Simulated scan of single mutants.
Amino acid sequence: MRTTIGYTIESIGYVIGAQGLVSFASQTFFGTEWGWLHKVVDLPSTAYLGVLAVGLALVVVGVKTRKVSERPEAV
Rank of each mutant, 00 (worst) to 15 (best):
M1S: 07
M1G: 03
M1W: 05
R2F: 10
R2A: 09
T4F: 12
T4H: 10
I5S: 04
I5T: 06
G6Y: 06
G6S: 02
T8D: 01
I9K: 06
I9M: 10
S11L: 11
S11H: 00
I12S: 00
G13F: 02
G13C: 06
Y14K: 04
Y14T: 00
Y14S: 07
Y14N: 02
Y14R: 04
G17I: 06
G17W: 03
A18G: 06
A18Q: 00
Q19M: 11
G20A: 08
L21R: 06
V22S: 03
S23V: 00
S23Y: 01
S23T: 14
S23I: 06
F24V: 05
F24T: 06
S26F: 03
T28V: 09
T28A: 13
F29N: 12
F29V: 07
F29E: 11
F29K: 09
G31H: 03
T32P: 02
T32S: 13
E33K: 14
E33D: 12
W34M: 10
W34H: 10
G35Y: 02
G35D: 02
W36C: 07
W36R: 08
K39W: 12
K39N: 13
V40S: 01
V41K: 03
L43H: 06
S45Y: 15
T46R: 15
L49W: 08
G50E: 07
G50S: 13
V51P: 01
V51R: 01
L52K: 07
L52H: 02
L52Q: 07
A53W: 04
A53V: 15
A53S: 08
V54M: 02
V54W: 00
V54D: 00
G55A: 11
L58G: 04
V61N: 08
V61R: 14
V61D: 13
G62M: 08
V63F: 02
K64V: 03
K64D: 14
T65L: 14
T65S: 12
R66G: 07
K67F: 11
V68P: 07
V68M: 13
S69Q: 12
S69A: 15
E70N: 10
E70A: 15
E70R: 15
V75C: 05
